[in-house]
């Protein structure tokens, strides 16, 4: 039980290193988590390769015949107008990371700030207003919100990203708010008050860093949600406007599958499934490793 004492002590001066070290050690022992991380890494390499122009650059070129089968030249075949599905699938990986990262960072940052402020001022009108905003945004159907934001931005390609950030931050903010309400009664926060630190400084320097374990897990969850939403929004014509994505590939493929040509559909589905699955498992393992309730 001495281990419990030390973790309780290190909890007071901020999480200290011990929680993160312990989490890292626990994560390394999690075989599924490590494999998942490896999978995400491979996808990230593919995406970076597209960014630096190593591959996937020819996604828009019509290079082959219509519906060419899988061959040495066209690894995944070609689509209805003869574009290389392999190049398109690779390029879409980049799009997925772009959407996922932007939304994850945006939503997590927004959730952290509003959650921390609401939690710190819990019981006051500031908290009430933030809760009200969260309730309101939660009650607007997601797809309608995307459409509405797209309208008001005059069909901007960023409407999808903004709409996702505008909804995904809420879950994070709720968790952070709850944690901050717990944290602000701890001694070190009261000590910070006592020595006269400003509220902003207390929130962002002393409280928020201690919710980082929540933010990390929430960011992975937002990442996955963004990738999954992109597919549906792109299919509905509300998603990726210029460029190529798994959602657009699947949308394209809905005509092809009825004609018995599955390459486009399978390539996008399988690649997307792999990334989402790997990220989900990574997220789970991370959550396990960071869960303070799991003893040792």
């Amino acid at each position: 039980m001495s281990t419990m004492n030390t973790s309780a002590v290190s909890g007071i001066d901020g999480h200290g290193d011990s929680l993160w070290l312990k989490a890292a050690r626990k994560f390394k022992r999690d075989r599924v988590g490590m494999w998942a991380l490896f999978g995400v890494f491979i996808y990230a390499v593919i995406a970076l390769g597209v960014v630096f122009g190593f591959w996937g650059g020819a996604w828009a070129d019509v290079t082959g015949p219509k519906w060419a089968p899988v061959s040495a030249e066209y690894w995944f075949g070609t689509n209805i107008i003869g574009q290389d599905i392999f190049a398109r699938a690779l390029y879409s990986t980049r799009t997925a990371f772009e959407v996922g990262l932007l939304v994850a960072i945006g939503a997590t940052a927004l959730g952290a700030v509003f959650g921390a402020v609401a939690g710190f001022f819990s019981g006051t009108w500031i908290d009430e207003i933030i809760i009200w905003v969260m309730g309101v945004l939660d009650s607007v159907p997601f797809i309608l919100l995307v459409a509405a934001i797209a309208y008001s931005l005059g069909g901007s390609p960023w409407a999808m990203h903004i709409a996702m950030i505008a909804t995904f931050w809420i879950g994070t903010a709720r968790l952070v708010r709850g944690e901050v309400i717990k944290l602000k009664t701890l001694e070190y926060v009261e000590a910070a008050h006592a020595i006269g630190l400003g509220k902003v400084k207390i929130i962002f320097r002393h409280i928020l860093p201690n919710t980082f374990h929540i933010l990390l897990v929430q960011a992975t969850i937002s990442f996955v949600a963004a990738i999954k939403s992109e597919v549906i929004l792109s299919f509905l014509g509300l998603g990726v406007k210029d460029g190529m994505s798994w959602g657009l590939m699947i949308s394209e493929s809905t005509f092809e599958v009825l004609a018995g040509f599955f390459n486009n559909f399978i390539a996008a589905s399988v690649l997307m499934f792999g990334l989402v699955m790997a990220f989900n498992m990574f997220s789970d393992a991370l959550q396990d490793a960071l869960d303070p309730r799991s003893v040792k």
Binding site: K228, V231, I232, F235, G247, I250, S253, T254, V257, F265, S269, M272, F273, V276, M277, N280, M281, D284
Partner: peptide, 16 residues
């Protein structure tokens, strides 16, 4: 976990 990682759209097309 598999169900959670498959897009709704892909499931629809797949079942179709």
């Amino acid at each position: 976990a598999i169900g959670m990682s498959i897009s709704f759209l892909i499931a629809i097309i797949g079942f179709q």
